[in-house]
Amino acid sequence: MQNNNHAPSVTVLLPVYNGEQFIEEAVTSILAQSFTNFEVLVMDDGSTDGTGKILRRLAANDARIRIHQRENRGLIATLNEGLALCSSELVARMDADDYALPHRLAVQYDYMTEHPETAVCSAGMEEYETGRILAWEGYGEAVRARLLFGCCLHHPTIMARRSVLLDAGGYDAAMPSAEDYDLWVRLTAAGYSLAVLPQVLLRYRVHPHVSRTAYKWQMGETTSRIQRRQLALLGISPTPRQLDRHQFCISHCPELPGKLQEAEAWLQKIVAANEQKVMYDQDVFLRTVNEIKKDFVRSSWQRDPGQYVRRILRTIVKDGIYRLRLGEDFEKRIVGAARRFGFFSQSRKQ
């Protein structure tokens, strides 16, 4: 049940930079929520287009909109500053080009109210352009185990307890393009419980025709650092090739049979390591690994010849780099160059 006191129960934190094309639709989708006791804190990160004018017009018609405008500092600084300015304990993230479904805040507010042990809850989302559904369900230890393999919380869908995020130090500027993934891992390591709700609560723009090569490369580098840090706690120091197999595990991309066999062998290595270290609840961890293996998709020449050939070429290039064995620093430089040309794609988005 929502609280109808004067003070907002939820602050929707919405950073924007030059978002005039979609900002009105994004804000309007929040204003149309069935849950009404909220404020929208729009952090205008130095926009130079018509974003500010649109926001001022919207704010003039709805007192729940609060605009904070200053020079451009980037997403991480904007998020951390926004957290400090929020008026409520519960904070919901929203991107400037997405669309919140009408019941989004109601569903998440009810869940967070009924589960005070939960620090952050995420939800499913639908790709705006394709209609593809991105959804998974998990709670507590299942989320912590899943985070070993990748970010299972969709950042634009989260609702979180502001005090917990601030106590954790907020988003780390040293983790660009995967600052949310890093934060969730740090929270679970500190003993906080996270939840991923199965409901689809957001329509998310992918922008398939916009080049994001530099962003994906940076995200891949940061993601690798986060995963190496977690694997080290299990006593595992992966080679670049092993880390590639690790990151493939929850990519849901069709892959060659031989590569799938390597990924399965890698999963068994991790299971054995956890049996020794007991970093994760063993039953939950084994279920997580079995779920991951169940989702493996084999690439097929008959079903999609073009994709099959691309996977062969991609594997030849990547594994050829790994076989050079010219030192980790050299490999990092080569792998970084390969990412820039799209050989090392990352499907997770901010």
Rank of each mutant, 00 (worst) to 15 (best):
H103D: 15
L55P: 01
H115Q: 11
M94L: 10
F38A: 04
T36G: 10
A123V: 00
K53F: 14
V16L: 06
R64H: 10
L55M: 10
L41T: 02
T113P: 05
R57T: 12
A77S: 15
C86R: 02
L83V: 03
I67E: 05
E81A: 06
R66M: 10
I67M: 11
L13H: 03
A106E: 08
S34R: 14
A84C: 07
I65Q: 01
S122Q: 05
Y99A: 04
Q108I: 07
M112I: 14
L58R: 02
L58K: 05
E39S: 12
R56F: 05
S9P: 04
M43I: 08
M112D: 04
R70P: 07
A123E: 02
A100M: 03
D98N: 12
E25W: 15
A84M: 10
R73D: 07
N80G: 07
V27E: 01
A123P: 02
A77W: 00
N61V: 13
T11E: 09
A59N: 08
A92R: 00
R73M: 08
N37M: 09
L83M: 04
E20W: 15
S47M: 05
V42L: 12
G52Q: 10
L31Q: 05
I65R: 04
Q108S: 10
F35I: 01
T51A: 13
D97T: 14
H115M: 09
Q33M: 05
A60L: 09
A32F: 03
A59V: 07
A92P: 06
I67Q: 06
L83Q: 02
S9L: 08
G82Y: 01
T28F: 11
V91G: 03
S87K: 14
L31A: 11
V91I: 14
D110H: 09
N61S: 13
N37K: 09
T28Y: 09
P102N: 07
K53H: 15
T48E: 10
H115L: 07
T36Q: 13
G82H: 01
A32N: 12
G50R: 15
A100N: 02
R73I: 08
E20H: 14
V120Y: 02
